[in-house]
Amino acid sequence: MAHWDLTVPWGSRATEVERLIGLGATHQWDVLEEFSHVQWTTLADPEGNLFCVAEHPPADGQRS
């Protein structure tokens, strides 16, 4: 069993999550405040395999 982590540009995670849900993924949970260096959403594909969509803040630390 593999667990995939997809990294997207800062600020685009919600858009990518919605796109993947539209393709058949199911939202499982979000981790937004536990770690300062990454935020992610865990999804399940139609067969139940979990994967994450993650975003890291820009190198300059600026979050919009």
Rank of each mutant, 00 (worst) to 15 (best):
Q28N: 09
V31P: 02
L6H: 03
V38R: 02
D5V: 09
L50Y: 15
D45W: 10
G61P: 05
H27R: 13
V38N: 04
H56P: 03
D45Q: 10
V53I: 13
D5W: 10
M1P: 06
S12L: 06
P46R: 13
V8Q: 01
T15P: 00
L23W: 09
H37A: 13
F51A: 01
Q39M: 05
L32E: 08
A25D: 07
T15I: 11
L50F: 14
E34K: 07
L23Y: 14
G11L: 02
G61M: 08
G61T: 11
S36Y: 06
G22R: 09
H37Q: 12
V8R: 03
A54E: 01
W4Q: 02
A59I: 10
W29I: 03
L6T: 10
L20Y: 07
E33R: 08
V17D: 02
Q62F: 06
R13L: 01
T15R: 13
G11W: 03
F51E: 05
R19S: 14
P9G: 01
Q28T: 10
D30R: 10
H37W: 15
E34M: 07
W4C: 07
R63I: 06
L32C: 05
F35T: 01
P46T: 14
E16P: 00
L23M: 14
D45V: 09
D60K: 10
L6I: 15
L23T: 08
S36F: 04
A44L: 15
T42K: 05
W40L: 03
L50Q: 13
Q39E: 08
E47F: 13
F51P: 00
R19F: 12
W4T: 06
W29Q: 04
P57N: 06
P57G: 04
A14L: 03
R63V: 05
D60F: 07
Q62G: 06
A59E: 15
S64V: 08
A44D: 10
E16C: 03
T41E: 03
